[in-house]
């Protein structure tokens, strides 16, 4: 199976990710699922100006790698690419890419969904929402806490 993960400030090309996956998986691969997550422009009726993503490296990359290997094994996937972006991202910009190759659509879809859920909960990646009504840390799956103060270091 082919596995690659990355945490980057760059915006990858979906075409290149698809080609990379197809080039590196065996000929029995018949389905590729591509999931792309984007920064929302509106949250709780408040305008979002940007999200700032931060990752605890190298452990965030290691956690993505474990998720990719474990889910590939569980679903019998042929290949998994997970790319998570960090830094300042404005609404409409992509944040995460999950590209999954499998023998058939069922494995590709369920594998993609399970990988996304685990990335959201296990990846040591964090975000700060800069909105019209202030700055909020997002904790876990949706809990928000207002930024106490700007850290200086």
């Amino acid at each position: 199976m082919y596995i690659r993960v990355g945490i980057t400030r760059e915006k990858p090309s979906i075409d290149e990710l698809l080609n990379e996956l197809m080039k590196n998986t065996d000929p029995s691969t018949g389905a590729v699922s591509v999931f792309v997550g984007f920064v929302k422009g509106l949250i709780d009726d408040k305008k979002v100006h940007k999200l700032i993503y931060d990752a605890y490296e190298p452990y965030a990359s290691k956690s993505l790698e474990s998720i990719a290997y474990e889910e590939a094994k569980k679903h019998g996937l042929k290949g998994v690419i997970i790319i998570h972006r960090v830094g300042e991202l404005v609404p409409g910009e992509p944040t995460i890419y999950i590209v999954v190759g499998a023998k058939s659509r069922h494995e590709a879809f369920t594998g993609t969904k399970d990988i996304l859920e685990r990335v959201k909960h296990e990846s040591y990646i964090y975000k700060l929402e800069i909105r019209d009504d202030g700055e909020y840390w997002v904790l876990g799956d949706g809990e928000r806490i207002k930024r106490l103060k700007r850290q200086s270091s």
Binding site: G37, F38, V39, K40, Y53, A55, Y56, A60, H84, T95, I96, L116, V119, K120, H121, E122, S123, Y124, I125, Y126, K127, W137, V138, L139, G140, D141, E143
Partner: peptide, 9 residues
């Protein structure tokens, strides 16, 4: 020291 992760979208 980390809170629960908030990666993804």
């Amino acid at each position: 020291i980390l809170p629960p992760a908030s990666g993804g979208l």
